[in-house]
Design a protein around this nucleic acid. Sequence first.
DNA 1: ATAGTTGCAAAAGTTTTGCATTGTA
DNA 2: TACAATGCAAAACTTTTGCAACTAT
Lengths: 143, 143
Amino acid sequence: MMSVRPYADAVEKLRAAGLRPTRQRLALWKLLFSGGDRHVTAEALQAEAAGAGVRVSLATIYNALHQFTQADLLREVVVDGAKTYFDTNTTDHHHFYVERDGELMDIPGEAVEVSGLPATPAGMALERVDVIVRLRASDESKA
Amino acid sequence: MMSVRPYADAVEKLRAAGLRPTRQRLALWKLLFSGGDRHVTAEALQAEAAGAGVRVSLATIYNALHQFTQADLLREVVVDGAKTYFDTNTTDHHHFYVERDGELMDIPGEAVEVSGLPATPAGMALERVDVIVRLRASDESKA
DNA sequence: ATAGTTGCAAAAGTTTTGCATTGTA
DNA sequence: TACAATGCAAAACTTTTGCAACTAT
């Protein structure tokens, strides 16, 4: 018979990824995938979990984030040397990045086209093309 | 009268940037700008300096790299959360990145065009558009 | 002589690791 | 019960900071 518990989806998706549906992974899953697309850092996710009454160690958060990434449930986004962002949107897309706030926004991938790229060097295969549009508040008094 | 010492250019460029042409900065300058375009990490640059018989502390390397960056003599490139790269090419251009080797290659900027980007959000000004083409060795046995 | 620089070591920050404990199946 | 996952604390790393000693002008 079919389960009617919440998380039924999550349980199956985790199993499909070869990951046991543990309490922690389910809690993180819910935080990550309940709303729309999200961009989180390990630290922010831990704070959220804590706010939701779930105690998860940072080590476990990192473990889960990397496991989810390997299972193609998350995508790592590199925009700032200081912090690693994980994106719940794993489809082909790009990013706006507001350096001052550390805020990331998706740019749908279908619209964007990059032309004029040279051929991939011999012996190399194209893995992915990342476009990062860096923004600053236009009313910043300086610069 | 005109100086015929090596570094004459460097001395002037540093002065123009408001930086004293100290022994360390001149040595780093030479390492950075003697060849063609280069992509270096702080650690790699220190190793190079050491190999050239110049002892410079990592702290000084970081100081110099950031000062050069502020003076628009270098450009910071973010491709990997673990390490910060500095690029001696400050003109508008993009990058190939081979994750496995941590190798960066320039893609001339004139050729590349990014189209279909949505309008910059209200109150925001466009700072820069970075295109990173991630590559992997095509003969990698796995994945 | 003065003010900017350097070097060191220690601090700060993020991410990873090792191992005993716990929980899932 | 067995094996994977967790949590903690400590380690590993890169980058930054503070301050005494040094050096360019």
